[in-house]
């Protein structure tokens, strides 16, 4: 089973006094704010859940694994996630 955005909308709709449209907009806004934060290169810390970091990667030499050609991989940013202790404990049933 996979949890999707539709499931999140359904949960918000069930648990709150929102219309379906309001529930959908709530989930969209939540995700939009989280994305905008990371887009700005800012870390997102959600206590009890985890931390999303934006890491800067330096340019490096790489290879095309298919052809073996050497190429330069540009400097870039990547998003990493570190689960909080509370989330880890919850997943491990502690």
């Amino acid at each position: 089973m996979t949890l999707t955005k539709a499931d999140l909308v359904q949960k918000v709709y069930q648990n709150h006094n929102f219309t379906k449209a309001q529930a959908a907009e709530t989930v969209e806004a939540f995700l939009r704010i989280a994305k905008d934060c990371l887009k700005d290169g800012e870390d997102l810390l959600i206590s009890g859940f985890g931390k999303f970091n934006v890491k800067e990667k330096n340019a490096r030499r790489g290879r095309n694994p298919q052809t073996g050609d050497e190429l330069i991989l540009d400097a870039r940013k990547v998003v990493t996630f570190k689960p909080s202790g509370i989330l880890r404990a919850r997943i491990n049933g502690e």
Binding site: L3, D7, V12, T26, F49
Partner: peptide, 13 residues
């Protein structure tokens, strides 16, 4: 609402 969303995600995991 934020708590509902995050709880749903944590529960799924």
């Amino acid at each position: 609402a934020a708590t509902t969303i995050l709880d749903a995600m944590a529960d799924a995991l």
